[in-house]
Computed example of a mutant assay.
Amino acid sequence: MTNKEIWKPIKGYENSYQVSSWGRIRSLDRFVFKGSDKVKSIQKGQIIKPWLNSDGYLRVCLCKKGFKKYKKVHRLVAETFIPNPKNKLTVNHINEVTTDNNVNNLEWMTNEENINYGHRIENIKNTMSWKIKQIKNKTVVNIFNSLHEAEETTKIPRQSISYAVKHGTHLKNYMWERG
């Protein structure tokens, strides 16, 4: 592919929005009706600033006839620029950086291919499996390798332990911290 930025209309929003091969989204110049007297005026198009969703992906809000839809940027890029003859459902980030939505960094995959791709399983283990300290009277009485291990040993549900860790609250007469 080329390094030149190419803009194409977003399917279903052809007269309102475009997506670029670099992973940017823009609105187009359009007429809007403002105020209670519905004065027709032109609204200039602009680059839309995406936000990082809690799942680590960039999203944008697209509006059509007063209805808002929230879309993931990488999916808009893939649907617009990358052929998908086998109708695969998942868009993969080749370099595993979920905010890099350049068309050269995206590819279609099956869900199974995506789960087994690259360092994903190792990364999930490292982020989801944190050590847990069980503390009584400011003294560490146990260190667990994961929430699951803490639950197995103490018989306290891991959701409760996680809540206590995140909120710094006592649980079963112990304080709990990430180790």
Rank of each mutant, 00 (worst) to 15 (best):
E5R: 07
E5C: 09
E5V: 08
E5A: 07
E5K: 03
I6Y: 05
I6D: 03
W7M: 04
W7A: 04
W7T: 02
W7L: 08
K8P: 06
P9R: 01
P9L: 01
I10Q: 13
I10E: 12
Y13K: 10
Y13T: 11
N15L: 10
Y17H: 06
V19W: 02
S20C: 09
S20R: 01
S21H: 09
W22L: 11
R30W: 10
V32A: 14
S36T: 07
S36V: 05
D37P: 03
K38E: 13
K38P: 04
V39A: 02
K40C: 15
K40I: 10
S41N: 15
S41H: 13
S41R: 15
I42P: 07
K44G: 09
I47C: 04
I48H: 10
K49W: 00
K49N: 12
P50I: 05
W51G: 11
W51F: 12
L58R: 04
R59H: 13
R59Q: 15
V60H: 05
C61N: 13
C61A: 14
L62P: 12
L62N: 13
L62F: 14
C63Y: 15
K64Y: 11
G66L: 03
F67I: 12
K68M: 12
K69R: 08
Y70V: 15
K71C: 12
K72T: 03
V73E: 04
R75L: 14
L76W: 01
V77L: 00
A78H: 10
E79A: 05
T80A: 04
T80S: 10
I82W: 04
N84K: 06
N84S: 01
N87T: 05
N92T: 04
I94S: 04
N95A: 03
N95Y: 03
N95I: 00
E96D: 06
T98E: 07
T98Y: 08
D100V: 00
N101C: 04
N101S: 00
N104D: 15
N104K: 14
M109I: 00
M109R: 12
M109F: 13
T110F: 11
N111L: 03
N111F: 05
E113D: 14
H119R: 14
H119Q: 14
R120C: 02
I121L: 13
E122F: 06
E122A: 13
N126M: 09
T127Q: 12
M128I: 00
M128F: 08
S129N: 12
I132H: 02
K133F: 11
K133P: 08
K136I: 07
N137Q: 11
K138D: 15
V140A: 10
V140H: 09
V140R: 07
V141E: 13
V141S: 11
N142H: 07
F144Q: 06
N145L: 09
H148A: 07
H148I: 07
A150I: 00
T153F: 13
K155M: 08
I156S: 09
Q159W: 02
S160G: 12
S160K: 10
S162H: 11
Y163C: 10
Y163R: 14
A164G: 07
A164D: 06
V165K: 06
V165C: 15
K166F: 06
H167L: 03
G168A: 09
G168W: 09
G168H: 06
G168M: 10
K172L: 05
W176R: 09
W176E: 06
G179S: 14
